[in-house]
Every structure is written in structure tokens, then in C-alpha cells.
């Protein structure tokens, strides 16, 4: 039995945001996979089930809320919690967030420290996943 670090999917169409959040989480001991939009994130989740998703709200093709709502429809991904980053200046509908099982919302401009604290509160590094052995086709930088 090998204890693997928790897997976090970071999804944002702004490459700098993806880069900075990924780096912060990796430096804190998380394994990170990334996607530039909701559609690609959905494909990625089918291949590797993350412990947590950190997603932007406004993205082309599939928004963050649509991404999470789509995950809830699939039994395999229904329980994956999500944190949403948003640059919108108003509060998101709590009912919509609840339906999409979005546990927390972080407003842009955000502090990477704040994101890390929220991620640690949901999925601590010490509580990493148990796995027999890593699969050879699983790449941590799938996107």
C-alpha cells in the first residue's frame, strides 16, 4: 500500500491562474492536474478522478458551474467536492452552488495562500489517497 498525495484538478482559461494555483498546491504537497476549460476538464475527470476540483466560474464552452453540475450527474464523479474561483463582482446563487456541490467560493483577485488553506480544509495532504500502485498511463500534467 502506497499513500499518494491528494489529487486536485485546477481548471481555468487563464493560463497564469492555472500556473500559480498549481504551483502553490504542488509546493504544499498536492498532486495537480490542469485543464484550460470545462469541456476538457470533464474529459480529464473520466480518466483520473480527483479528490478536489478548483475551477474558474467563467470559461468558454462549459462554465465552472456547468462543469460541476455535469459531474453530479455521473455516479462516479458525483461526490467530488469543488472550490470555485470567480471574478464576478456579485454573489453567486447559493442554491445553484449547492446543487453543483461547490463547497467554497474564492473571489478574484485572490490570494494563493487563501486557496491553499481552503483546499487543505477539504482535503488535507495527510489524508491522501491509498493506492495499490500508480497506473502507467496516468500523467500528472494531463493538460
Amino acid at each position: 500500500m502506497v499513500t499518494q498525495p491528494p489529487l486536485v484538478l485546477v481548471c481555468d482559461d487563464e493560463s497564469h491562474i492555472v500556473h500559480v494555483v498549481s504551483l502553490k498546491l504542488r509546493n504544499a504537497g498536492y498532486e495537480v492536474i490542469t485543464a484550460p476549460d470545462g469541456a476538457e476538464a470533464l474529459e480529464l475527470v473520466k480518466r483520473r478522478l480527483p479528490d478536489l476540483i478548483v475551477t474558474d466560474y467563467q470559461m468558454p464552452y462549459v462554465s465552472g458551474v456547468e462543469l460541476c453540475a455535469a459531474l453530479r450527474e455521473d455516479e462516479a464523479t458525483a461526490d467530488v467536492p469543488a472550490i470555485m474561483l470567480t471574478a464576478r463582482g456579485f454573489r453567486l446563487d447559493p442554491a445553484e452552488l449547492h446543487r453543483a456541490r461547490i463547497i467554497d467560493v474564492v473571489s478574484k483577485p485572490f490570494s494563493p495562500r487563501e486557496v491553499l488553506l481552503k483546499v487543505q480544509a477539504i482535503v488535507p495532504v495527510s489524508g491522501g489517497r491509498q493506492a495499490e500502485a500508480p497506473s502507467p498511463d496516468q500523467s500528472p500534467e494531463a493538460a
Binding site: E14, V21, A87
Partner: peptide, 26 residues
């Protein structure tokens, strides 16, 4: 105003995040 606010926040987010990363020695 909403769109301007959103669009201004995006580069501002990068600036704030990278500056913080530099300060934190990341």
C-alpha cells in the same frame, strides 16, 4: 461595469498571486 470589473480582475489576480508567491518564497 460588470464586464469591466471582471476583465480588470483577471490580470489583477495574476499580479496579486505572483507577487504573493514571490513574497512567500514559492
Amino acid at each position: 461595469v460588470s464586464k469591466v470589473s471582471h476583465e480588470l480582475r483577471t490580470p489583477l489576480s495574476s499580479i496579486k498571486a505572483y507577487v504573493e508567491m514571490l513574497i512567500d518564497g514559492e
